[in-house]
Nucleic acid binder design. Structure first.
Length: 425
RNA sequence: GGAGAGGUGGCAGAGUGGUCGAAUGCGCCGGUCUUGAAAACCGAUGUACCGAGAGGUACCGGGGGUUCGAAUCCCUCCCUCUCCGCCA
């Protein structure tokens, strides 16, 4: 959520940045400013009425104390009238505040100046591309065929137990998953991130805090009986750890990493795009979250990009980094880099990580602030990124590593596995 | 799931319906003293909004009610703790 105080001052600049998303930013911002103006006017009137009422009530109290009953009774009339008026004003105030809140909730984060304008993935800017495509010839196979041949996962069994999108990993497939989780966590903790194991179900406040609610309600599994939501990413519990907190400057930066399963309903998805591991209802992910001082956040974003990049290099996967255009940028992000790996069996790029700076957008919703050296209270900046999401990494490892002798795994994973190559048992 | 207790400022903990935004202690901040520190003493110290400022308003878990007036009385919801039951 953007701050109304910032809208008042820097509205032209903000409107320009917001328009990169292709939305009617000018109208929304003007609506917000108009509602804010009304709200403040109404508040001033309400405050005056209440000040008057408070004074009268105090007088009545004094009069009763001195035993001047009639004089006190006489004052009650005006107090009652003031109360009626203040109730009306209060109602108006609530309506105005709610209306303003609704407009503010509709406003996405203002894109960073470097974000290219654009409507779709076509307009994303490729920052760089590293690694070489494996030359597997025409008979390279997709991971779902390899998974079956090597008995690494069972999609039909998942359907039996839960439904489509809930694969069962078996044997070397399960071991590979566990190895990847350990590898990622080891790399991340070595880089200075503290490991967490957060709840996998969160309350509505947490879902609002990171922006899953109210607009993306349908994306989450909702346990209605207990009013809890299954996390779509550990970003939700990890960032909400700091909700309603006043941090000391010395507490920053906060660097967290966590492995969790992630749950997404993905309603309406179907077809080749979701074949195999490409899109699941439940998947594993290791996440990075940072809470930092505002003037450091873009430097930190670069560090996080470098961290994710290092993981992909150690896994020896060809990848590219994209800067998302305004149209592709998530609602809450100011700048996002997507990482995609080349999957040789499917001959396509697969998104495996998304690293974003949210600036104060989440902090404003969650009231995460810190005290500066000169004792000012400032909103922090929050960032997060996947490091990494497992399924598509597994897909790429299987497809790119396939050979007549089995599936060759990168050296970085060898310490975490009892084998270096996946073979037909 | 059953029974009970409780939610007040950074923490602990008072609070008779009016002078309570709230005692007291601790902590934090500033100062005196000291070579330095501790101790002691003095002073300041909640949050948000409006206002150029003086100042004003709201907030004692959330919501509603009674009253001229509610931290205090009533209703309701939420949460935490203790005991019992069940259980990895």
């Amino acid at each position: 959520m953007l701050e109304i105080a910032k809208l008042r001052h820097a509205s032209e600049d903000l409107i320009e940045r917001l328009e990169k998303r292709g939305i009617q930013a000018r109208r929304l911002v003007q609506d917000a400013l108009e509602l804010d103006r009304q709200r403040r006017g109404n508040q001033a009137e309400l405050d005056q009425i209440q000040a008057r009422a408070n004074a009268i009530n105090k007088e009545i109290g004094q009069l009763f104390k001195r035993g001047q009953r009639e004089a006190a009774e006489a004052k009650k009339e005006e107090s009652t009238q003031l109360k009626t008026r203040s109730k009306e004003l209060q109602q108006t105030q609530d309506q105005l505040a709610q209306a303003l809140q609704n407009v503010l909730l509709e406003l996405p984060n203002a894109p960073h100046p470097s974000v290219p304008a654009g409507h779709s993935g076509e307009d994303n800017e490729e920052i760089r591309r590293e690694g070489s495509f494996p030359d597997l010839g025409a008979d390279a196979r997709p991971h779902w065929e390899l998974a079956q041949e090597y008995q690494l996962m069972d999609f039909d069994l998942g359907v039996k137990l839960a439904g489509a999108g809930f694969p069962v990993y078996t044997g070397a497939g399960a071991q590979l998953q566990r190895a990847l989780v350990n590898f990622f966590l080891q790399e991340n903790t070595r880089a200075g991130y503290r490991e967490y194991q957060p709840p996998l179900l969160v309350n509505a406040d947490s879902a609002y805090g990171t922006g899953q609610l109210p607009d993306k309600e349908g994306q989450m599994y909702h346990v209605q009986q207990d009013e809890l939501y299954a996390i779509p990413t550990s970003e939700v519990p990890l960032t909400n750890i700091f909700r309603d907190q006043m941090l000391a400057e010395a507490d920053l930066p906060q660097r967290l990493t966590a492995y969790t399963p992630c749950f997404r309903r993905e309603a309406g998805s179907y077809g080749k795009e979701v074949r195999g591991l490409n899109r699941l209802h439940q998947f594993d992910k290791v996440e990075l979250v940072q809470v930092v001082k505002p003037d450091e956040s873009y430097q930190v974003l670069d560090q996080m990009v470098a961290q994710v990049e290092a993981l992909l290099q150690k896994l020896e996967l060809p990848y590219r980094i994209l800067r998302l255009c305004g149209g592709d940028l998530g609602f809450t992000a100011a700048l996002t880099y997507d990482f995609e790996v080349w999957s040789a069996g499917q001959q396509r790029w697969l998104e495996v990580s998304s690293v974003s700076n949210f600036e104060t957008f989440q902090a404003q919703r969650m009231k995460i602030r810190y005290k500066t050296a000169d004792k000012q209270k400032e909103l922090v900046h929050t960032l997060n990124g996947s490091a990494l999401a497992l399924p598509r990494i597994v897909a790429a490892l299987l497809e790119n590593g396939q050979s007549p002798e089995g599936i060759q795994l990168p050296a970085a994973l060898h310490p975490f596995l009892p084998f270096k190559t996946i073979t037909r048992s």
